[in-house]
């Protein structure tokens, strides 16, 4: 009971100190002034916190990033420990940690996580393999674009989960409908985003290639394709979040395992602590995927980074 309040108080003090250190003055009520003191200059007031499209100092950035996680966590901890809410509805961080341990020792955690990751990996890899050539072709050739853009544009607005009943009818209850759902839910967005990236390849770069003796085919594979690699990685980083959503949707509807299935089971037995545990795992894995794709970008596309 004492600890969380102390934590919050410390966070508050920290936040205050961060603000002061970096030049954010606390707001004080303005008092009417009749003095003939020099009037404020007409220029823009300097600020660190509110600088537009600019970096902030590293320590400030680190402090704010810590707050970003610590504040919600502390709030959760406090509300749960104040006994305002029945802990059947809002389990404490400690109870969730225990649930996590339980799921781990029972072997569910590893099995369910592996099942979900496998589905995302296969479904998204298939979508990636299909979307790269089609997206590049649509971006590079107006002809292919005219041929495919209308149909892709319509189908992508059909919500992927709406296909679940059909997928179950066509593909049964195994892995296939789940992988197909992830594939369908991401492939069209991948295609359109890659297509857009190709449109931004500078025309002069292609024309230079031609005047160096290059053929269209060489321009396509040796200029356009490497130019859009960073955009492709970025596209995947954004759309893999969708596939992570869809795998849970698929598992909520019909599955024998997976983190989505674990959540449904936990609901049946009113184990909210397990639901919380699964949500945290989902968030952490998603974030890890994001970070690893960023790492891939850093490792392979130094030329495109600032």
């Amino acid at each position: 009971m004492q600890a969380p309040i102390a934590v919050l108080w410390m966070m508050g003090a920290d936040a205050f100190q961060v603000c002061c250190t970096f030049g954010l003055t606390p707001v004080t009520p303005a008092s009417p002034s009749f003095s003939t003191a020099p009037t404020a200059s007409q220029g823009m007031k300097p600020s660190v916190f509110w600088r537009l499209a600019d970096d902030i100092p590293k320590p400030m950035s680190t402090a704010l990033m810590v707050l970003s996680i610590a504040v919600p966590f502390a709030l959760w901890w406090i509300v749960a420990s104040l006994d305002l809410v029945n802990d059947k509805f809002l389990p404490s961080p400690f109870q969730v940690a225990q649930a996590l341990g339980r799921l781990w020792t029972d072997g569910f955690l590893l099995g369910d996580t592996a099942a979900s990751i496998m589905r995302v990996t296969v479904g998204f890899l298939l979508a990636a393999l299909v979307s790269i050539p089609i997206g590049i072709a649509m971006g590079a050739f107006a002809s292919v674009r005219s041929l495919l853009e209308p149909i892709v544009g319509v189908v992508r607005y059909m919500p992927a989960p709406a296909f679940i009943p059909l997928l179950l009818i066509y593909l049964g209850l195994g892995e296939a409908p789940k992988i197909a759902l992830i594939f369908m839910g991401t492939v069209f967005f991948n295609i359109l985003m890659i297509m857009d990236a190709v449109k931004f390849v500078p025309k002069a770069l292609l024309e230079t290639t031609y005047t160096l003796g290059g053929q269209r085919r060489q321009a396509l594979f040796q200029v356009i394709t490497p130019y859009v690699v960073p955009n492709i990685i970025d596209t995947f980083r954004i759309n893999i979040a969708t596939s992570w959503n869809l795998v849970v949707v698929a598992e909520l509807v019909a599955a024998e395992n997976g983190l989505g299935k674990r959540i449904v089971l936990a609901q049946k037995f009113f184990n909210t602590d397990e639901i919380f545990a699964c949500l945290i795992i989902l968030g952490v894995i998603g974030f890890a995927l994001d970070l690893s794709l960023r790492g891939l970008m850093k490792a392979t596309c130094k030329w495109a980074m600032d």
Binding site: L205, Y210, C301
Partner: peptide
């Protein structure tokens, strides 16, 4: 176009990668 007539553009057309 062909390599017998090499062209230099005003915009820098180096391959950035």
């Amino acid at each position: 176009p062909g390599s017998d007539r090499g062209m230099i553009f005003q915009s820098y057309t180096l391959y950035p990668w």
